[in-house]
Design a protein around this nucleic acid. Structure first.
Lengths: 199, 199
DNA sequence: CGCCGAGTTGAACTGAATCAAGAAACGTGG
DNA sequence: CCACGTTTCTTGATTCAGTTCAACTCGGCG
């Protein structure tokens, strides 16, 4: 293979280390297989119905997962720097993704092929531990999402969002926040007004 | 250790095998560490705010996870035979569960201590693969739950439930189904009537 | 037999959706 | 740096699906 400058994976490793100590072997593997990839604002990272061929680590920018149901755009999750993004539904099973993934802002990512991930698990079994813990983390997120949309009223939902994703509240267009919370943009706007008057 | 009759774990293994081949070592480990445990109808399996010390495999019966939010009982999930049940939120992190788990029917389960599960992952690293795949599966479930409550109207929600959990529809009290779908018992009753007239 | 939980039905009320219009902020090219 | 178009957000009026509260039915079961 032609020599090339090593990719700086320190940011990814730092995040993964938070879940479970990352071995030297894994670091080297990531250096060899991760490739920088940019997305401009509004770009589609993954289209529903297609197989997700990559894992992305978000170095900079914000991203959302969403579905279209009867012309209604439903945001499943919103995430930003230092998170991993992929179609979890199609992780190893080659199942098409049920959701779309889109860049909300200009994004810098590091991408690694799903096939390379499979191989990582085989070559470095410790990686399974990290994979499992990451999934636990993302499962917890999914649970939270299911919880938030069941909260009784719009004000509670928005308050929950502000309390838990404050870093996103003043960054992401309200239409995405509204569809994430399962309310309309207008209702969200009114809720925000009410809250701002309240204090 | 005193000799004892081996626990029959074939039912669990069969289910796990569906996700990933279960090694002999894992089978032996489960035989040594799983214990039968019964719950009567209405019994609390896990109380919110406490640390979940067990994984349960449901051999027979039905179980639900739920939260109380402002006096409102919210069912997060309903599940029955051949499923694994635990507080995923507190899997290895010793975080208290945010949800309650309760037996809806008389239940036969096989229980294994969380600490024994931790140990299983260490002694048999292949178990991490199974754990990871199981989590993927349950992640998908959680996504589905968030999706279903965002469906526009009550009729769609109930139809979705019938289409996807038909085996539970004529088995579980309507109040649990209603709170799972994020609608009231009365609304569910009306929807059912409307549907039955419709055909 | 009478009680209790589960489900149904009715009537009134309400929070959020919808429809519609306008204001504010943002970016891009002249 | 301003002008113009586009996107984002706000506000108002109206409508409606679903909640709430209350009464009633039905089928066990002690």
């Amino acid at each position: 293979m032609a020599p090339q400058n090593k990719i700086d994976v320190s940011q990814v490793v730092k995040v993964l280390n938070f879940f479970h100590p990352v071995s030297e072997g894994i670091v080297a593997y990531l250096e060899a297989h991760m490739k920088p990839k940019q997305f401009r604002k509004g770009a589609t990272i993954l289209k529903a119905g297609t197989i997700c061929e990559y894992f992305y680590f978000i170095k900079k920018g914000a991203v959302r997962g969403f579905m279209i149901d009867n012309d209604k755009d439903i945001t499943n999750w919103i995430t930003a720097e230092n998170e991993l993004v992929t179609s979890i539904s199609g992780l190893d099973l080659n199942v098409p993704s049920f959701e779309n993934i889109e860049a909300i802002e200009e994004c810098d990512t590091l991408a690694i092929k799903s096939t390379d991930m499979q191989n990582l698990y085989i070559e470095h079994p410790e990686a399974n531990i990290i994979g499992r813990k990451l999934l636990q983390h993302y499962y917890r997120d999914a649970e939270t999402r299911a919880y938030i949309v069941r909260l009784s009223n719009a004000e509670q939902k928005y308050n929950f969002f502000v309390n838990n994703y404050n870093h996103l509240a003043n960054r992401i267009p309200l239409k995405f926040i509204a569809s994430y919370l399962g309310i309309t943009l207008e209702t969200l706007s009114r809720v925000r007004k009410k809250i701002s008057l309240g204090k």
